[in-house]
Design a binder for these strands. Structure first.
Lengths: 110, 110
DNA sequence: ATCACATGCTACAGATTCTGTAGCGCAATG
DNA sequence: CATTGCGCTACAGAATCTGTAGCATGTGAT
């Protein structure tokens, strides 16, 4: 593995408000999805790719690097997995699942 | 105002899993930020633009249309605001603020 | 009335980012 | 060895975003 930690700037961090940096990081293609797909355990990079509708490995790799840099992911024996911090973040998002079901209902009713 | 509701497809909705559609919608540039900036009340399109680091009006408008289509936003007398559903969604995200502070601490400690 | 001003929204060229396919180097396993 | 699967990269074409300018409409004051 690389082992090298490249400094990776998160856009929006210039404001100094971490929430902005976080919103920016999460508001990139596949970020949320990656965290979501790892909710049940580690996945190899290829399995993760498959889980993410075969997203392009280029972007996926970028997101993985960024999320790893942010301290949300780590590369373990069985592939990529959430760090404790990453799990905390994911838990913040879990209510989203329920919400999405309610959302569909409301949309269907129109 | 337009008054016309154009059908707008959310990528990921093909899977039929609303959570995927939601993650995709929210995982676009400025989506999360827009919801966030509207947390305290309505903002005119220009005020919103200013709040979002002067993002390009083109994308912003796309996001506004999409979020409006999704039923999260509406255009009221004082500009754009969250619908009840949108507020529910935002509330799902509020813990993110706290998390982001904790996150910064952990990052700073490295 | 008309003038200035603010609103929601659009056009468009250039820059950035994403997609899709191919393939690399490396370790583990047969 | 040969094979297999891994993390990761290259690269051209497509899609998306940026930045600036400006339109059409509405409101309010002069």
């Amino acid at each position: 593995m690389t082992g090298v930690t490249k400094p990776r700037r998160v856009r929006g961090s210039r404001t100094g408000r971490p929430i902005m940096a976080l919103l920016d990081l999460l508001g990139r293609r596949w970020s949320l999805r990656i965290l979501w797909e790892l909710r049940q355990g580690e996945l190899t990079s290829r399995a993760l790719r498959a889980a993410c509708d075969d997203a392009s490995p280029t972007v996926l790799q970028s997101r993985l690097d960024e999320l790893r840099d942010a301290g949300f992911l780590q590369l373990g024996g069985d592939g990529y997995g959430l760090t404790p911090l990453g799990r905390e973040l994911l838990e913040t998002f879990l209510p989203l699942h329920r919400f999405s079901e309610r959302w569909r209902k409301q949309v269907d009713e129109r």
